[in-house]
Write a protein that binds this DNA or RNA. Structure first.
Lengths: 336, 336
DNA sequence: ACCCTCCCCTAAATCGTTTCAACCCCCCAC
DNA sequence: GTGGGGGGTTGAAACGATTTAGGGGAGGGT
């Protein structure tokens, strides 16, 4: 039932080596022979066995992608980009969720190493970057995704989160808001810290006290936590004029709470999100957000990982840093 | 650099066969030997080469998942469920987007066959189910996802879309809405047709004319098309009381247009969506929606595909059909 | 007629596992 | 003391491709 290169060779009346050549270097085989082999391939419906190929050559046609949460549309977009690039190169993407859990991350890494993937694209769990380094020792190339390399010997593709924070706060200040707060996920996550730093930069640059920025930290970066944060804002005394949220999911959660509570957005409270996921524009109060080129991020990362083993030895590690961009919509406009 | 089973055998002073036994049937090897081998494994950091394993055994530890659009949170959830199940079984998920394009679908199928995946979970492009059948001929097991098997010899996991349509319309009628319309994606997509049929069923059962349901068909099932549909509703004469949308992305698009136009939802226009994605609950007007057990769908599908080759021959094809469930939120409540 | 080239192809080695028949040794039963 | 077991291990044959050294034949130059 399973048809191998041998069957093709037999049917075409040539040796297996020749069939292999037809597959991999069609130019070295005579036209006539090539046609004959091709016919045999079609007739038998032969499809090369990638495992055998990769056992021999040592290089796989698969790359791993480990993200903290595919339910976040931001990472979905990244995955799209990676898949596009991989697919162009005849590679396949193996998708894994770490859920920010070290254990799950390591389990997935183990599986990926077993598969002898060509490379791994990963947003590592903050606590545990070591396993990622061990990969390199194994000769698996690694690209850090959206988390800048503290480590020297890997490529990384990320976005300037600090700049993003600055853009958001500058905008809110320019719109005349003064009482600012930031809703953030766990500050153990680098992205959050950097966005906060950027926010403070903006305050300093505007001659204001960076500690005047109230920081509300919640446990996860999803809609539920956003609602949580919203409740906290409502419950507090001295409600801020404007909120900068560390991602759009948080912002949407907050927004929902505000709308229900009858707080006018942006009239009484301006909101800026981060990521510019599709749902940001589609929210009932379209959300101002800091856009990251998410799909491009994934694509570049995949390209880097695919490129690395082209010139294996004197490969220079790239650190691609994209710039975020503020997309202004209704949720943050000045209200008169 | 790459360490193989041979290196482990040498270090532990046993034969490769024994090492393999330690890996696969630890019980048949003596405690003492087993420990010695285990130590060698740890010391060398040996990780089994899955390609070699699968070349020998013929079965891969990977399953393919082909969906029309990962950007749709519904499919993201399905992917999560599939990954959970796969991961429990030590398998890995290869994710592919077809974009409802036959060409992309076939290209991905080709790659998956090359990888000799254990099985494929697929929501096939409507136009081209044949390539999927060809998979079976190759001995790849297939589970149809969310699209009921017209085909006899595959498993399928789906949700009763017709019932979903009925639930939605029954609810709208019960809330006292009379002038109903349905916003749907291309009727070439089975899910859309079935949801529409279900909607008509409900009208008939209520003694009303099923042709009284206005059907607005748009080209895709995303937010942008939803906005489009919303504009059309606004532009039309005789605006409906209530809208049933074929998925939540459409509903969110419509909702956004209505809110901007100052149409009160649910006061002047009730809206019901489909899928109950997380963003439905998080919308500024929380969306009533027909919930599908999306994550479970993915999980069951993966379990089926993994189970099928356990008992390869006299495998009975299952057709799992889940029932949808109406989740009532504000967007559809009667207003007095 | 001989030798060289060049082109196209073949045969065999190899990748890292799993599996299976054979074997070894020790102990026990008769 | 001999003949079975039987637990534990070994060695070699696969799996399906790629790769490389080499062979055969045609053609051309001298």
């Amino acid at each position: 039932m399973p048809v191998s290169i041998k069957d093709v060779a037999a049917l075409a009346g040539v040796s297996v080596g020749t069939v292999s050549n037809v597959l991999n270097r069609p130019d070295v085989v005579a036209d006539d022979t090539r046609r004959r082999v091709q016919t045999a391939i079609d007739e038998l419906g032969f499809v090369r066995n990638e495992s055998a190929r990769q056992l021999r050559t040592g290089t796989a046609r698969a790359i791993g992608l480990i993200v903290p949460d595919v339910s976040n549309p931001f990472f979905t977009d990244v995955a799209r980009g990676a898949e596009d690039a991989a697919s162009d190169a005849g590679h396949v993407v193996i998708l894994c969720n770490s859920d920010e859990s070290e254990q799950r991350q390591d389990r997935h890494l183990q599986l990926l190493v077993e598969q002898r993937v060509h490379g791994v694209l990963i947003t590592p769990v903050e606590a545990a970057p070591e396993p990622v380094l061990r990969l390199r020792a194994r000769g698996v190339s690694v690209v850090l995704l959206d988390r800048h390399a503290d480590v020297q010997d890997t490529c990384s593709v990320s976005v300037d989160h600090r700049l993003g924070g600055t853009l958001a706060i500058n905008h809110l200040l320019a719109e005349g808001h003064r009482e600012l707060a930031m809703i953030t996920g766990p500050l153990s996550i680098a992205q959050c810290r950097q966005r906060l730093d950027g926010a403070r930069d903006a305050l300093v640059a505007a001659g204001r006290d960076p500690d005047g920025l109230r920081v509300i930290e919640v446990g996860a970066m999803n809609v539920v936590s956003g609602r949580n944060a919203g409740e906290r804002v409502l419950a507090g005394t001295r409600r801020p004029d404007a909120l900068f949220c560390a991602n759009d999911l948080l912002a949407l959660g907050v927004l929902q709470v505000m709308v229900r509570a009858g707080v006018r957005v942006p009239g009484e409270l301006a909101i800026v999100g981060y990521d510019d996921i599709d749902f940001a524009a589609a929210a009932a109060v379209p959300l101002t957000s800091v856009r990251q080129p998410s799909r491009l991020l994934g694509r570049r990362a995949a390209e880097l990982v695919l490129g690395e083993t082209q010139a294996p030895q004197e490969h220079v590690h790239h650190h691609v840093v994209f710039s975020p961009e503020l997309v202004v919509r209704e949720s943050s406009r000045r209200f008169r």
